[in-house]
Amino acid sequence: MKTFDQLAVIGLREWINLPELGMVGLRGKIDTGASTSTLHASDIQPFDRDGEPWVRFTAHFGTQVQRRHPCEAPLVTVKSIKSSNGHIQTRYVIRTLLALGDRAWSVEFTLACRKTMRYRVLLGSKALVDGQLVVNPALTYVQDKPQLSLPSGAQ
């Protein structure tokens, strides 16, 4: 059997931070069936800053007590996402730093309404590949809670 020593193991759910957005203590659900990661957002408004496209939105997190957090981020693109039931939705895409355990790396997130979903953040397969992670779906919260401050060497 092959082993992958350079890859970190994570569980089906993990604590994450999005430090560039000022968001800590998010419960993320790992979704290997999704290519792109998703962040629950509302009030999404594109705008220009110094001639560059940006997006302003309200991020939502917390499971028992809902918290709203105003955010702004450079807009990467707008893409069409096809759900598992075949529904196509146009979504704004941002790129921001994700901290999970002792690692931090840049991840693309689509912004979408997830108010009916238990988890406000989904981590898709592209984020897992870029973070050099493997998933053991029998485990949850394997990694320690990440710190808000940026780890040394984070990009």
Rank of each mutant, 00 (worst) to 15 (best):
A73G: 10
I81H: 06
L97W: 04
L75S: 01
I81Q: 04
H60C: 03
E52R: 15
S83K: 03
R95W: 06
Q64K: 15
K82D: 00
G62P: 04
T90E: 05
Q89M: 06
T58P: 02
C71Q: 07
Q66W: 00
Q89C: 01
W54D: 03
K79N: 03
G86K: 06
S83G: 10
H87E: 15
G86M: 04
S84P: 02
L98A: 13
F57L: 08
V55S: 08
T90K: 07
P74N: 14
Q64S: 14
T58E: 05
I94Q: 02
V65I: 13
S84D: 02
N85Y: 03
I94S: 02
A99C: 15
H60L: 08
Q66I: 03
A73Q: 13
G86Q: 03
F61L: 04
R56I: 01
T90N: 01
A73C: 13
R68W: 02
R95N: 12
V65K: 15
K82A: 00
Y92E: 13
T58K: 09
G62H: 06
E72L: 07
T63N: 10
C71W: 07
V76H: 00
R67K: 12
G86S: 05
R56D: 07
E52T: 07
V78D: 05
E52F: 13
R67M: 12
V93L: 10
I88A: 13
V55N: 11
R91C: 05
T58V: 12
F57G: 12
W54C: 10
K82W: 00
P74E: 13
E52I: 04
T63H: 07
S83R: 06
E52K: 15
V78I: 08
Q66R: 07
L75E: 07
A73I: 10
A99G: 08
Q89N: 10
R91Q: 02
I94E: 03
H60I: 08
V65D: 12
P70K: 09
V76I: 10
T96H: 00
Q89P: 00
S80Q: 12
S83Y: 04
Q89T: 14
